[in-house]
């Protein structure tokens, strides 16, 4: 198993948000995690990537059999965990190319691979930018600075394409995208799907799943997975909305 989450409980500022999550993600799989606002979707993404301020109170997470929670965020990235941000951060004064080269070489160094020189790096960037239909001129600008919402999200998937993670957690990558941008982002994600990597798609809406077909769909509510199924579950959710969660006894959130 690539990623194994067992009884994960986590709090933010003392407030319990995740209340016992169990999830197995195997290589080659795409899992969609859906749920209403406040159900803990983004918290799950942040806990898995090691964001400071998110405190794990119980449970375990292993990545390729090793304790993921013991690692610093940068160590998780170097092991092959990637977080696609819901709100990519603008960093004035840090050039996109420079940033990605530093990131890629940190990861390659960790894997015992040689660092890429400027020539090979530019070649890789051009190739992956074309894959993502990303305007190359964006790459010589500061990280996300002045990018449109769609450009920021495409830049996230572009970074994923360059860094080639084993596990990508894409946090509401579809939010704020118009239908054309959504199609481009989804096409990019599909091109990156392989038998030896996995993707967790965190999303509020079903529409991304029209383009990126998940193997599993999980519904998160009150910090727990209350229902799991195949891709048809997403279609049911689209019809019913999330209101049924309030009434279904099995879906009632457990508060500690």
């Amino acid at each position: 198993m690539l990623l194994k989450i067992e009884n994960l409980n986590a709090s933010v500022a003392g407030e319990p948000i995740l209340n016992g999550i169990d999830l197995d993600v195997g290589a080659g799989q795409v899992h969609a995690v859906m749920g209403p606002n406040g159900s803990g979707k983004s918290t799950l993404a942040h806990v898995l990537s090691g964001r400071p301020g998110y405190e794990v109170t119980e449970g375990a997470v292993t990545f390729e059999g090793d304790d993921l929670l013991a690692l610093e965020p940068e160590e998780r990235a170097r092991e092959g965990v990637f977080l696609g941000f819901q709100y990519p951060v603008e960093i004035p004064g840090v050039n996109n190319n420079y940033f990605l080269k530093a990131a890629l070489n940190a990861i390659r160094k960790h894997r015992g691979e040689e660092e890429l020189d400027a020539f090979d790096f530019i070649k890789l960037m051009k190739e992956r930018a074309a894959l993502m239909e990303l305007d190359e001129s964006l790459l010589s600008r500061a990280v996300n600075e002045g990018f449109s919402g769609g450009e920021k999200k495409r830049n996230e998937i572009f970074q994923m394409a360059v860094l080639d993670p084993k596990l990508a957690i894409l946090d509401e990558t579809d939010s704020g995208l118009d239908i054309d941008a959504l199609r481009v982002v989804a096409t990019g994600i599909n091109k990156l799907r392989r038998d030896d990597n996995a993707i967790i798609l965190i999303t509020h809406y079903q529409r991304l799943l029209d383009y990126v077909q998940p193997d599993f769909v999980h519904v998160l509510s009150g910090g727990r997975i209350v229902k799991s199924g195949d891709k048809t579950l997403a279609l049911d959710l689209e019809k019913q909305g999330y209101a049924w969660l309030e009434t279904s006894p099995e879906a009632r959130p457990v508060r500690s």
């Binding site: 964001r51 940068e74 951060v89 004064g93 530093a102 990131a103 940190a106 970074q159 860094l163």
Partner: peptide, 22 residues
């Protein structure tokens, strides 16, 4: 910004240096 850089694999020291220079 610091977390963003770290989440991509940059160490704390390097991330702080990059942002300071920026």
């Amino acid at each position: 910004a610091l977390f963003y850089l770290r989440s991509r694999g940059l160490g704390v020291a390097e991330a702080r240096a990059v942002l300071s220079r920026a």
